[in-house]
């Protein structure tokens, strides 16, 4: 297990408050966690517990009001580079074709940015290979709004991964999809992760999704969010839909659910 590997992301007693004075609201309190390189973690908790806040802190999109966030041992002061993000909404640009949408990170992130014009054909081939690996081969020329919700979300994952980021941030990326599509994308996600071994942070409220995909699940309390439970998932990979019906899997889900119910009591 990745426990022995040095941690890539470290949060030490991180807290975050929005607003100031009387309207000050503590969203996250005393979060301490460390993510090893290549680890897949999931953060679950009741809605409004600051899960998304945690994600923004790790990527440096929000500065913490207390404690510190370190990536590669360096304190994070602004948006860190080499991060891929996917959200509940696919956030694709309707004026770009699917292919051009996925090329976007390569136009922005160094060193690809510098090489982009001269090596465009190579990058286009890379995107097409990536599209094929998520089951979207040949759809590059379509516009996002010509694709179904599931296909748009696959494209969004491609965009998050195309520049081979070290860290992938997933903020309920399957939340808006129907159950069948969602479960299918779990396996797509797992396949991509097993091939590339990026470090992934998945924020979700779907416990089965968390157990299916993650090495470690962090359970957060109600607002202000605190980490109340850390659960290692040692089920063998690749996990399949069959796995989700096995006793070990179901037991873990129950265990997590009980912990979250305590928050609602």
């Amino acid at each position: 297990m990745p426990v022995t590997e040095p941690s890539l992301v470290e949060l030490r007693q991180v807290s975050l408050a929005y607003g100031s004075g009387a309207s000050r609201m503590l969203a996250l309190e005393d979060a301490t966690l460390s993510i090893a390189k290549g680890e897949f973690i999931a953060v679950v908790g009741p809605s409004g517990c600051g899960k998304s806040t945690l994600m923004k802190l790790v990527t440096g999109l929000l500065p913490p009001t207390g404690g510190e966030v370190r990536v590669h041992g360096q304190v994070v002061k602004g948006p860190i580079r080499g991060v891929g993000m996917a959200f509940q909404a696919p956030t694709l640009m309707p004026w770009r074709s699917t292919l051009d949408n996925i090329l976007l990170p390569l136009e922005v992130v160094e060193p690809h940015k510098r090489r982009f014009r001269a090596h465009k054909a190579e990058y286009v081939a890379r995107v097409e290979a990536l599209l094929a690996s998520v089951g979207l081969g040949g759809f590059g020329a379509k516009y996002p709004w010509q694709l179904s919700g599931g296909m748009q979300q696959r494209s969004s994952l491609c965009r998050a991964l195309v520049h081979e980021p070290e860290i992938l941030m997933l903020d309920e990326p399957f939340g808006a999809l129907d159950a069948f599509t969602r479960e299918e994308l779990w396996s797509v996600m797992q396949k991509l992760w097993m091939e590339r071994r990026f470090t992934a942070v998945l924020v979700t409220h779907d416990l089965r999704e968390a157990v299916y995909l993650a090495d470690t699940v962090y359970v957060m309390s109600r607002r202000p969010g605190k980490i109340v439970k850390i659960r290692k998932i040692e089920l063998p990979r690749p996990r399949t839909l069959e796995t989700t019906f096995q006793v070990e899997f179901v037991d873990i889900v129950h265990e997590l659910r009980e912990r979250i119910h305590m928050e609602h009591a």
């Binding site: 923004k56 990527t59 999109l61 948006p79 860190i80 580079r81 080499g82 991060v83 891929g84 993000m85 959200f87 909404a89 956030t91 640009m93 976007l104 990170p105 922005v108 992130v109 160094e110 965009r159 520049h163 941030m169």
Partner: peptide
């Protein structure tokens, strides 16, 4: 979110 995607890409 679009802004976050762009900012996190640097």
């Amino acid at each position: 979110e679009m802004r976050d995607v762009m900012r996190s890409l640097g």
